[in-house]
């Protein structure tokens, strides 16, 4: 009987400790949930000291769908994944142009939320451009 009580107690403790822990995909899952099924409108783009505002103009927008597809206002369509590479959260996009050509874009996620998204476009050389989006 004493053994049974001990086993029961250990089981309860293990169950309480084990359940609901952070996993390798917790952060990307949360970021994905914040990103998907919204229309992100570009409000500002900043390259070095050069800042441009597009607030209220709906000049450029992009959507990330739950099934991994992304499309933007320029007519570009692609597949995206949210990844963490060397502790940097990124969106990897395999784009297809209207002509059918493929190319990869990588954005560093500076910040993502329910209504605000800040990305930094990775480039080989020069100053990266930061893009500030708002979902409406």
């Amino acid at each position: 009987m004493k053994k049974l009580h001990t086993i029961l107690l250990i089981s309860i403790v293990l169950c309480l400790i084990a359940c609901n822990k952070e996993t390798a995909t917790t952060q990307t899952d949360v970021m994905n949930n914040l990103l998907v099924n919204k229309i992100w409108y570009l409000d500002y783009s900043i390259t070095g000291n050069n800042s441009k505002s597009y607030v209220g103009q709906s000049t450029y927008f992009v959507t990330y769908l739950k099934d991994g597809l992304t499309r933007d206002s320029d007519g570009l369509i692609g597949n995206y994944t949210v990844e963490i590479v060397n502790n940097q959260s990124q969106i990897h996009i395999m784009m297809k142009t209207i002509n059918g050509n493929s190319f990869e874009l990588i954005y560093d996620i500076i910040s993502v939320g329910n209504t605000k998204l800040v990305l930094s476009k990775q480039i080989v050389s020069g100053t990266p451009t930061q893009l500030f989006f708002t979902s409406k």
């Binding site: 970021m31 500076i110 329910n114 209504t115």
Partner: peptide, 8 residues
């Protein structure tokens, strides 16, 4: 917290 997530 170091994750790049924002809440209003």
């Amino acid at each position: 917290i170091t994750a790049p997530i924002n809440y209003l």
